[in-house]
Design a protein around this nucleic acid. Structure first.
Lengths: 194, 194
DNA sequence: CAAATGACAAAAATTAATATTTGTCATTTG
DNA sequence: CAAATGACAAATATTAATTTTTGTCATTTG
């Protein structure tokens, strides 16, 4: 307690308080109380409540992008990797949503308050996918083309299964099947090969 | 005014009042006043305020499904038709959202209150698409398979461009390009043809 | 007598007074 | 003297009293 307050300590405690009280009911005073400091102190570490929430959102999104980045960095066929990557993304989002829907909704609301944080997160994810797609184009597994555009297309074509705004629909008993069908459409294409 | 009140008259006026006052500020009394009747009268035509709103939502969604149904019924190549159908769907949604975002949000909120109405609407749309896909499979334009599943996959893979929950993202300057890339991915597929 | 009314109770929403929260900064503490 | 405090004003949110709204139904109207 005599130690100086760190940014990570504040973020840990902020998350705890947010989980207990919820996004709307959490005040800076609540966070300060949980840390045993005055609320003025928090303003020496974060410029505003918005900046504090932004930092929490950023950290939460890194929990998604970090394991995915590992998959993108592995060895192996690009086809297997792109499939693992997307399936992992879908699984992370859907399992968080299923385990604790309220908490999932709260973190998403938190993230939505910080457009820039979300934008950076999406760019990071598409950059990871781009890397895999580039490999697949080089190895001859995938059709040649603009890897970044192709990666974005894969990401957006699967949005139904990982975009938080569509989380309500993940409760459907067909969602797993639908993902498989979309994935098959993306990989094989609609049009008959001549 | 001596004429008996019709269901369509009530729905027309309800829409007018909703557009003026908004979803939250519109009461059954407001609608009755605009019609020049007592609010008790409306309950002889609709079981509840929810039922009245449901009927408005249903009518609004038919404005989407009706023109699309015409495309599905036309003559011509299945490939052209599936493309026209999806492009039309995307265009209807995005232009409504762009022209009057508040009104678009209101009608969507209205529709979201009636899960069954939305479910029926989506089923109708996918049934239309299924018809086109079936033709394409018969004519040899498309790969053979389960037409309904394939239609659903096309619908869901393009959700980013027509699902109202994602309307915020349609303002992006890249949205048109992204649609083209997703469409090309869906038709040609990611994997290199041997 | 079919269609509409309007008075009514219960539920829901609004309002305005009250209290909390955010953000600042001069002062205090170790 | 760097780090933290706490008193303060302005902005925001909560609460509880008041009003409106929903839905019903016995009565009225054409």
């Amino acid at each position: 307690m005599a130690e100086p307050l760190t940014r990570e300590q504040i973020l840990d405690t902020t998350e705890q308080v947010l989980r207990r009280f919820g996004l709307d009911k959490t005040s800076v005073v609540d966070v300060a109380r949980a840390l045993g400091v005055s609320h003025g102190t928090l303003y020496r570490h974060f410029a505003s409540k918005a900046a504090l929430k932004e930092a929490v959102a950023e950290r939460w999104l890194h929990e998604v992008s970090t394991p995915l980045g590992k998959i993108a960095g592995e060895e192996g066929s690009a086809f297997d990797k792109v499939r693992s990557w997307i399936e992992r993304l879908v699984h992370i989002k859907q399992s968080k949503a299923k385990e604790d829907p309220e908490l999932f909704a709260m973190y998403n609301a938190l993230a939505e308050e910080s457009v820039e944080v979300i934008t950076a997160h999406i760019h990071e994810l598409i950059a990871q996918l781009t890397k895999i797609v580039e490999e697949g184009m080089k190895s001859g597994e995938f059709q040649k083309g603009n890897a970044h555009e192709q990666a974005a297309a894969i990401f957006y074509a699967t949005a139904r299964f990982h975009h938080p705004a569509l989380a309500k629909e993940w409760a459907s008993s067909h969602i797993q099947e639908e993902f498989k069908q979309v994935w098959s459409l993306i990989t094989s294409g609609l049009v008959k090969k001549s």
